[in-house]
């Protein structure tokens, strides 16, 4: 499942990130957002959700949220 489908406040492990944009992938990596790392959706709205990666908070749009698949 991807980040638009997960339960808010629950920690998941990133399975795959598929943005077809190498620079963005590299950027996400430097934030600590890559497969095998934990991620939590803190709150979610229709078009935007706030995630916690390592000890940082980021708002991402639902398009990027959909590109990040996770497992429990």
């Amino acid at each position: 499942m991807n980040l638009t489908e997960v339960i808010e406040g629950k920690e998941y492990i990133i399975d795959k990130i598929d943005t077809e944009d190498d620079e963005l992938d590299a950027f996400l990596f430097s934030l600590g957002c890559y497969s095998g790392e934990p991620i939590t959706v803190v709150s979610r709205k229709k078009k935007m959700c706030t995630v916690s990666i390592k000890d940082g908070r980021y708002s991402i749009d639902s398009r990027l949220a959909a590109a990040i698949t996770v497992t429990e």
Binding site: T19, D21, F27, M48, R57, Y58, S59, D61, R63, L64
Partner: peptide
């Protein structure tokens, strides 16, 4: 064409 959005949310 579409783009992604990500921004760090400071306290």
């Amino acid at each position: 064409k579409k783009s992604y959005f990500i921004i760090e949310i400071p306290e």
